[in-house]
Amino acid sequence: MVESVLRATLLGLQLGMTLALIAAGLTLIFGMLDVINFAHGALYMLGAYFGTVIAGQFGSFWLALLLAPLMVGLVGAAIEILSLRPLYDRNPLYHILLTFGIAIMIQGAIIQIWGAQSRQIPIPDLLSGTVAVGPVNYPVYWLFVLGVSTVLIGIVWLAIERSDLGILMQASAHDTEMVSALGIDVSKVFTGVFVFGAILAGIAGVLLGGSRSVHPGMGFGIIIEAFIIVVIGGLGSFRGAVYAALLIGLVTAYGALIAPTLTELFLFIMMAIVLMAKPSGLFGATEAA
């Protein structure tokens, strides 16, 4: 029993932190750009696929972890500059249709190029095997994923709260015209935020691609979880996304112990309760205002 709970807790934390990487991008993009980015799951998936290609080609997981997210960032830049930018002042429905279309296109391209078969990113010997965590043996790689995600989330958090760039980002989101009047090119900030979100999703893709199967359906699978997280945490709130991601990760992991088939339902019920009790999400009112 103790073992099961410990194992579930570790999994829940790891899931939470990797989901936070994805949800952070989603919520930042919404917070700054006012765009609900349905293509975010596809960017995560691209990270995983680029990872399989690079790791397969050069035999190096580390190179994949470094390069694949940057490539996803490039794709993100192309999406923002070429397709989103002309639509910023339109009705949000346009953003949803556009990004949803892009998600379908990326999925289609992946099937065309790499086929529908599952793949996986081979993990380095250094990270294979298990290590004893108290009474349970836990895979080294999964702990590695937990560690890397946690560190990254910490850095991003600090950057947003403390750095000049973070303050600029928050300012741009708060009052675009004022920031623009101060001589700052807001469109560059927007591109930067979108690319940054894409890179985080790409990193999550490579990390999870080492422990989960990489397949063309993974993008749409993750986007639903990411949305639940963002809604619970509060649209646009980074802090909210991190807390909500941890909550969802732990609920998913414990749910599997108690009632596996109902876990997904739990998530939706939680979202419904939060929406009824506090429609702006747990942290929505304070930050997204």
């Binding site: 194992r7 570790l10 999994l11 989960r212 699978g221 992991a253 599997a256 112990l257 596996p260």
Partner: peptide, 19 residues
């Protein structure tokens, strides 16, 4: 030990299998 279709992370179920 039954796991729902489309399970991504099997570690909670592996605990039961091992146990």
């Amino acid at each position: 030990v039954g796991a729902p279709l489309g399970t991504d992370d099997f570690s909670p179920y592996l605990g039961d299998i091992q146990g």
